[in-house]
Amino acid sequence: MEKKDRIYSLPTWRMTKWLVKPGRNVPADIQVALLGGLFGSLPIFFGGIINTLMVAALITFRRPEPPFLLWLALETLVCASRIVVLISARRAALAGKPTHTDLYVVLALCWALSVGYGTFISLLSGDWIAATLACLSAASMVGGICVRNFGAPRLSAAMVALSIGPCALGALFTHESILWLVLVQVPLYMTSMSMASYRLNDMLVSTMLARRENELHARQDSLTGLLNRHGLFGALDTAVRNAGHGHAEYAVLYLDLDGFKAVNDPYGHAAGDTLLTQVSARLVALKPADAVAARIGGDEFVLLAGRLSEAEARELGERIIASVSLPYDLDQDKPVSIGGSVGIALIPRHGADRASVLHAADQALYLAKSAGKSRTAMAQP
């Protein structure tokens, strides 16, 4: 069974949108991909929750006083809420529903604030065992925060400040002047970890952009900007799967130019390339909004369109031939003209897989050329 990707919805509140924004000029699809990291890394997520709950429980057992009882209650409530929202969001993401991202981000901040509150009251208590345990726990959480949330460096920096910042604030209220060193150490630690999150984010965004660019080049024809053979194969595989699930038929229109060699040979390859780019522009102008166009050979093109009846596919093929047959301005003495033949195959009627449907369209193209060229032909059943 094909694994379905989880798509998490972007936040809608002004504050949460600002917190998860990865940086300038980051495309929306990469922002969505980075957002998924906030809901992933489950071992780190549950490890952090277990750690902070255990520390809060142990210190509260040691000092069952109102501030610590409040801390344990707050920690329990926030952690339970985070788990519920996380599970709900992961299920909603699979179903294509809203994932309550705003609430999830706010709960992350509340959790960091709860950790910071625990360190603050532990330092104020004068119980150095409790203070040491709480501060060590908060410091260890910073690493997990940065690793898990560097897709949103602003959120990571805010969580670091809320969780470890109160250590410095608490040190001011102690009677141990030696602890004032924390006033220097903690800001430096917060700054360095936040900077690390930003660097990791920049590296990840750059890697994702490079990967997307490579994938685009792997699927795109360098001359025309249309899909190449590899890109068409991916689109055909998707169409075959959708058609197999009972969706509407897809039409595959296989176009081969008539007379291209008579232009390319006397006028040169540069003129031939110009003609091919103009043909591709005409195909793009004619294709339905949800269709894809590909160049799979020297002068061979394929248009893949969904929700077309046989009559509509034939009509589209005729319009393609009429458009391709119009004159081309190639900066020569006079405009040049070519023709085109189109073979049509329908998915799944003429093929239940990529190879068979392309073969059917190719055979239909052969019929169109055999019948005199500059015409369409439908694949045989």
Rank of each mutant, 00 (worst) to 15 (best):
S192M: 11
E75L: 06
W180R: 15
A131S: 12
F173P: 04
M208S: 13
G340M: 01
Q278F: 05
A130S: 15
S114D: 07
G317E: 01
L69T: 08
R82L: 08
Y8Q: 02
W180L: 14
G40F: 11
V32S: 05
V20C: 01
G48F: 05
S370R: 08
S309W: 04
G47M: 02
A28F: 00
R63M: 13
L181K: 03
Q220N: 09
V106L: 09
D29W: 04
P327L: 01
L326I: 00
L58N: 04
L227D: 02
I320E: 02
F39C: 01
L77V: 15
P166H: 09
R295I: 00
F260G: 04
I44G: 04
P348F: 07
A305I: 11
M208H: 12
P166M: 06
L136A: 06
G37I: 05
Q380N: 04
A95T: 04
K97E: 14
E65A: 14
Y328C: 12
G47C: 06
G259I: 03
P381G: 14
L38K: 10
A134F: 00
A161T: 15
N149A: 12
L316S: 09
L42E: 01
L123M: 14
L70N: 07
V302A: 02
W71R: 09
A352E: 09
R14F: 00
L113D: 01
K373D: 04
L303S: 07
K261R: 05
A360F: 00
W18V: 13
K3W: 02
A138S: 10
A379H: 11
N201R: 14
A262E: 09
V357E: 05
S163A: 15
T238V: 11
M195A: 13
H269Y: 02
L183N: 14
A139K: 01
V357C: 09
Y117T: 03
L109D: 03
M159K: 10
I347D: 12
A251C: 09
I121F: 02
T376K: 08
G225H: 02
A368D: 04
G268R: 06
V142H: 00
V32G: 06
L286D: 06
E249M: 15
P153V: 05
A152I: 08
L69V: 11
V20I: 06
L107P: 07
S114L: 02
A377K: 03
G225L: 01
R148K: 15
G36C: 10
Q380D: 13
T16R: 03
A291D: 06
S88D: 12
M193F: 12
D353V: 07
G96P: 07
G170Y: 06
L155C: 13
L181E: 01
K261W: 00
I338K: 05
K3L: 14
I83G: 02
